[in-house]
Every structure is written in C-alpha cells, then in structure tokens.
C-alpha cells in the first residue's frame, strides 16, 4: 500500500455515540497518522469498546460528529463499506459462526477487501504467510470460524486477519485480554509487523501488559466517555503504578491532538 508518510488515516471530531439514547461516548477528538500506534486505556465500563465498535459502524449505535478515513467521511457508511475502505476491528469477543470454515470465511473477506475474486493459489499463499506469523496450526483452516476456539485461538485469528487484510487502520479491542504470556508475545509480534507496514493502530486495552511488547507512540486515557489525557508512552507506565483514580477529574479535560 502506498501511503504518503504522515497521512491522517483516521480522524474523529467531537464524536458522540448513543446507545438507546444514552450517551456513552461524549465528544472524542482523535487523529491517527501513518504508522502511529495509539493506546487507548481506561477502566472497565468507560466506553472504550463502544467507541471502537461505533468507529466500525455497529448498527445498534447512533453516532454524532465526524469520522474521516483517509480524509473521507465514513460515519454514514455500512460496516462492510468501511472495511473495504481499509478499516479493521479486532473484536474483544470474536463471535462464532458455526458451519463456516476459517478458510472459506477468510477467502470471502480477502475478496471483499481487494474488490476482486482471489485465485486459490494467491489466497493460500497469503493465508499461510499470515498464519506463520501467528504460529497458527494448519488444521485451523478447516475448523468452523471461532467455534469452540479457546480465547487465545480467537485472538490469534483476529490478528491473523489484520495481517491478511492489510487495513489502513486497525482498531484492536482488548486483543491482549485472555492471552497467556506466550500467546501475548506472538500476537504482539503480529501487531508490530502490521504496524511496520505503515498501518495506523488504535490499541484499546485495560491493562498495561501488552505495552511491554507493543510500544505505543501515543497513549490516551479514556474515562467516562471522554479522552481525559493524552501523552507519550510514559503515561502508560504511570498508569501502571498509579492506576486510573488520580485522573478521575470531575471536570472533563478532554485533550485533542494535531
């Protein structure tokens, strides 16, 4: 993918997300540029996952404000159209689709992303390359999608899909949760590999743990539906020692970057 360096890949302006008329995300400004790794950290229930799903176009959420993908507004687009334009969401809880094999699903997804049929040989090569990075056993391809997968297997398959589909921007929602240390290292290697390819990344996480392996450029703290602080990687270390409470300022101090 030929991206101009330092392109604005994903921008949100005053993004608000409503679930059943309840405002969950209360005005977020965010900008992710080429090759940037952002960590969005916050306590449980702060609305992080809602923000990620809304960016992907979850049909149950109503959104106000602006979302730009590479300069184009996408807030009115379906999730599939967003995906075809290069947005990717790695799910916290990838859903099982029984009866649909991993291989047939991946091939349909790759064809949708590339906007053309994918010959078997090309598909196999790309799939194998991505599987190799994630150290996924061969028998994965014949299994039903996420059906009976362990938590770690599901997360590996999410990151594998990110490598296969080569999105412009990936949102990874709690991809580190439920992973043992070995799996965490493998998944992190996949994330780093994708990020080297100029992809923009938003790593949504509750824990600091994955940040030992994936070095973020920018860390946001997300609380009560707002970004309450944005800083460099040192902020993550501070959160590790101090927790989130010290940031729970009743007066919102949302900061914008860029």
């Amino acid at each position: 993918m030929n991206l101009p360096t330092n392109e604005r890949l994903l921008s949100c302006r005053d993004l608000r997300v409503f679930v059943d008329d309840k405002e969950i995300v209360k005005g977020v400004d965010l900008e992710i540029r080429t090759g940037e790794k952002h960590a969005l950290m916050g306590p449980n229930g702060s609305g992080k996952s809602t923000l990620a799903a809304a960016l992907m176009g979850h049909p149950a959420y109503r959104v106000e404000g602006e979302i730009l993908l590479r300069g184009e507004p996408i807030a009115g687009l379906s999730p599939d159209e967003r995906a075809r334009r290069g947005l990717f969401l790695g799910f916290q809880y990838p859903v099982a689709v029984p009866g649909v094999t991993v291989a047939s699903f991946l091939r349909a997804a790759l064809a949708a992303r590339l906007g053309r049929e994918v010959p078997v040989r090309e598909f196999r090569q790309k799939m194998q390359a991505a599987f190799d990075v994630l150290e996924v056993p061969k028998n994965f391809t014949g299994r039903y999608l996420n059906d009976g997968f362990s938590g770690g297997e599901k997360k590996r398959l999410e990151v594998m899909q990110m490598l296969l589909l080569e999105p412009a921007v990936a949102l990874l929602d709690e991809t580190d949760s439920g992973l043992d240390i070995d799996a965490l290292k493998i998944v992190s290697a996949g994330v780093n590999l994708a990020a080297r390819a100029e992809m923009g990344l938003l790593l949504v996480t509750h824990y600091q743990r994955i940040l030992d392996y994936v070095q973020p450029d920018i860390v946001h703290v997300f609380m009560g539906g707002r970004i309450v602080r944005t800083a460099g990687p040192e902020l993550a270390r501070e959160l590790e020692t101090r927790g989130y409470d010290w940031l729970a300022d009743p007066a919102p101090t949302a900061t914008a970057r860029g």
Binding site: A53, P59, D80, A83, F105, A108, A109, A112, Q161
Partner: peptide
C-alpha cells in the same frame, strides 16, 4: 456485524 466488519455485504 462480525462478518460485515470483514467487508462482506449484508
């Protein structure tokens, strides 16, 4: 939603 987030139309 999962399948559509991978580019498959509804």
């Amino acid at each position: 939603f999962y399948l559509r987030s991978r580019g498959l139309s509804a």
